[in-house]
Nucleic acid binder design. Structure first.
Lengths: 366, 366
DNA sequence: GCTGGTTCTGGAAGCGCTCCCATAGATTTC
DNA sequence: GAAATCTATGGGAGCGCTTCCAGAACCAGC
């Protein structure tokens, strides 16, 4: 609809300003009914303590009676706060968004944001066009804060946000020296525990399928894998490391490569369940039994981990809690912009299933 | 902090009103730089055609030079449009949100909403408290339109929205006589096709595990199942129908019940993949082979359909397209509120996998 | 009873924008 | 060539709210 290109009203009638109920009563109505000035009503509603009990009560009564709801736009205009938080999800790769990881993070974020009476804006970025639009959008300061999930090492967005001075919290960090606030699961510890579990089960040729190394999660999980081996006195070798891309197809290909290169592999730690599912297919087609011949551990404890056969042992992150923590950090930062950045690592947990059972349960290898 | 009221001109004060960039240049700045009045600048920017080419060009140059971005709140205040669409997702049951169904619908919605330069608000509703908050929120008219996914038959929300006169589109309908606009997959046709596939493969004792009957999707899929049987000249019997709840555990229980009641069942049409996954477990523990003894079909073609063993034959809905259609319907309705409601049913597609292969491929039953 | 504080309150000034209205030019018509 | 008709423009009035400021009302204290 082209803005009322002039002639939608023939005469003095149809006056848009006097719409029936463009949102209901105004603060003036409340003030009038309560018998106070608008400014007093405003103070009463916003909880200024320089209002007498009597006035406050009168205002509250009037608010209730009129069903008054403040006009958000008017308030935003004068306070230059929007009470909105943007959640930005890049949706380049494989429908990342459908991973429980994202939905649970979002769920956690949503809880806290709603509790703070703020709005949550969901922004999916799929391509360059949307990316440009997003940049313009952020420059227009239409949100009080931003949450960024799935950041790549060279993503320009965090830097932009930093320049614009918009409070930002990342789900996961870009690198080891992250300057912004972030919350992440303990990827290093989680990976290490997973590999230690394999070592404890007697596996000796433990490979890993890593994620793309331009993502810090992938690097950290790989580091955790190496750490576990080193601690167990095993020197990690590069031919047991296969870098992939977090997709199922990538997991399959990587597993084939590993089998080719090191046929004696007896365990694989995959940096994601999706890749583990791919690896499982490759192992099946190579006629290796899981877990008897090769034990398999995934990461994320996503929905597919429970549905493969055998079900996947996997590292679970406290995803909803991560979401909540992100929101809390951000809300604090919005309320108090000069507050120093904060970074949080939350513990993970190994969920043991059939693809890599514990001590003794597995094949009597070694 | 003293507020430098108005006179930040000559004074050395550098007062807050002249904040660094509370959002950048204003329309007045643009007008001044372009050498026109504010109203002209406004018209130029909003594409009124009553502006001379010369003025328009000057304004555009000024906008570019200043990096001007309209203040949304100010615009919203005067137009009483928010340019925001709320997407409301009840998150009662099992992390529904993580189903690809939701994420793909959201993805489609997001594309269209972004293209229209509107904002997408995500509102998750988990409990009564959040529900009340939502009601208050909707009453405050802070969104131009609402998208409701996963509606139950007796959900009070659609009615509320109808009363408030807020443009609304549902993903799926509440019942057969839905008064609001909606977009849905062809549940009836999809179910019928699935069952016809089973019939075509020679199955004769085809059961169904239905969803909760207070959801129209569940009813419609059940109706499609019955329709297929009737068309094939088989009278649908109630002991082959087991109502469940769309959860995995529910699917397991339902399958057990069916096996108990009708041990000769040779195929099951499940109203969701999640329930099919549960049914699969029940069949396995009852030592029925899938598909040789019992063929299994799911619905949704969700991520788990590809990861069970055997992989599930399932009915795929054009989910992203549904999302896009929803958004388009809604945006139309926002632009033109008196436009009649519209309802759209989009076709589904049967994806055949091992759990219910086609003719001849399956066991030589019958 | 008057002064010197405290509270509390009402008036008023905008926040940045859209859109109505009146006016100044430009163009046409007779 | 003057009147009539358009068109583009500038002025200005708000949209509903917060917040500054000055003044009213109140309480002590001398």
């Amino acid at each position: 609809m082209k803005r009322g290109t002039t002639d939608d009203g023939p005469g003095p009638s149809a006056s848009p300003p006097a719409a029936p109920h463009p949102g209901g009563a105004t603060l003036d109505d409340v003030a009038a009914l309560a018998g106070v000035a608008r400014s007093t009503a405003s103070r009463a509603i916003n909880g200024s303590h320089e209002v007498s009990e009597k006035a406050r009560a009168a205002v509250q009564r009037a608010v209730a009676e009129l069903g008054y709801v403040p006009n958000h736009a008017a308030r935003a205009l004068v306070t230059s706060r929007t009470d909105a938080i943007a959640l930005i999800v890049p949706e380049t790769e494989t429908r990342l968004f459908s991973e429980p990881y994202f939905s649970d993070v979002i769920s956690g974020v949503s809880m806290e944001v709603a509790a703070a009476d703020m709005q949550l804006l969901l922004i999916l970025v799929r391509n360059e066009g949307e990316r440009r639009r997003l940049t313009a959008y952020l420059r227009s300061h239409r949100v009080d804060g931003v949450i960024l999930v799935s950041v790549h090492r060279d993503d320009p967005l965090p830097t932009l946000l930093e320049e614009l001075g918009i409070p930002t919290v990342l789900a996961g960090r870009r690198g080891e020296n992250e300057s912004l606030s972030y919350v992440a699961g303990d990827n290093h510890g989680g990976a290490r525990t997973a590999v230690q579990h394999l070592i404890g089960a007697g596996r000796t040729r433990i490979a890993t399928i890593a994620g793309p190394l331009d993502m810090e999660v992938a690097r950290t999980r790989l580091a955790g894998y190496r750490d576990a081996l080193v601690r167990a006195g095993q020197a990690p070798t590069d031919d047991l490391v296969q870098v992939s891309d977090f997709t199922e197809e990538g997991g399959r290909t990587a597993m084939h490569a590993l089998l080719q290169r090191s046929p004696d592999v007896d365990a694989v730690f995959c940096a994601s369940d999706v890749m583990a599912a791919g690896a499982l297919q490759a192992l099946r087609s190579a006629e290796r039994r899981v877990p008897e011949d090769v034990a398999l551990v995934g990461f994320d404890d996503s929905i597919i981990a429970r549905h493969t056969t055998p079900a996947l042992t996997s590292v679970r992150q406290p995803v909803e809690e991560i979401g909540r923590a992100i929101a809390r950090l951000l809300l604090d930062q919005v309320a108090e912009p000069k507050r120093p950045r904060r970074q949080l690592i939350l513990p993970t947990e190994l969920v043991v299933r059939q693809s890599a059972p514990g001590h003794g349960t597995s094949a009597a290898k070694s």
